[in-house]
């Protein structure tokens, strides 16, 4: 068993490039997932059936099929009749879209956790539908689900190496390229350890958030 630290030194500059790309994909993917998820969750509660059903069908389909195949679909099929995107952009869109169907469920759970009395109170005060959502329901619903949303950010971080498969140079992409050029394997080990080093503090942070936001309401 050999582990060559010189190889690690040589890999480091490219490792940091990869970290930057991974974090970029994660940040933008999170934005899409959080925003789109809220749209899905609200659409699934829409009074009109023709909105509710297609949205539920689409989100269930996305949620039950692998992200990897969705990325291939976005990368190879969509450009045939739509915009052609760089690997990183495709990855961001794929991650965001896939995880938006998960955050939709989280929002849904949060919305269902708001007592019925709150809806009735909003109705009694004759608030409009928009006001009811924006000032009564969502502030109470989202507060409870922040930790659950945070968990999906970490889950997204762990799925982000998949974008290397369609050619984005994230942490895994850089490690793969470096390993192929130099016939070494230390880079993959470094990236694996890096994931634990990023994910563990993040999980501790989520636990703190959970104690702050969920337990003392």
């Amino acid at each position: 068993m050999t582990f060559d630290w010189d190889v690690v030194d040589e890999f480091m500059p490219r490792f940091w490039d990869g970290v930057l790309v991974t974090l970029q994909a994660l940040a933008l993917g999170t934005l899409i997932a959080f925003a789109l998820g809220l749209v899905w969750a609200m659409a699934q509660r829409a009074p009109q059936r023709w909105i509710r059903w297609p949205v539920t069908a689409v989100t269930e389909f996305i949620r039950n099929t692998p992200l990897l195949v969705q990325l291939f679909f976005l990368f190879y099929v969509v450009p045939q009749w739509g915009p052609s995107m760089s690997p990183l952009t495709t990855g961001i869109v794929g991650l965001g879209l896939h995880y938006s169907t998960y955050t939709a469920e989280v929002y849904r759970a949060g919305i269902e956790g708001v007592p019925v009395g709150q809806w009735e109170a909003a109705k009694a005060l004759s608030l409009s539908r928009g006001r009811t959502w924006s000032s009564v329901i969502l502030p109470q619903a989202i507060r409870r689900v922040v930790p659950a949303l945070g968990n999906y950010v970490v889950a997204m971080l762990k799925d982000s190496p998949m974008i290397a498969v369609i050619g984005a140079l994230d942490m895994l992409g850089e490690a793969r390229q470096f390993s192929n050029e130099t016939f070494t394997t230390e880079a993959i080990t470094v990236v694996g350890v890096a994931f634990i080093v990023i994910a563990y503090p993040a999980s501790l942070l989520i636990r703190v958030l959970e104690r702050r936001l969920v337990n003392n309401t």
Partner: peptide, 17 residues
């Protein structure tokens, strides 16, 4: 709702608090 937050925490990285 409780199952959902538990589900999120097994896949993600947070604890159950």
């Amino acid at each position: 709702p409780s199952g959902e937050s538990m589900q999120a925490s097994t896949q993600g990285a947070g604890g159950l608090g």
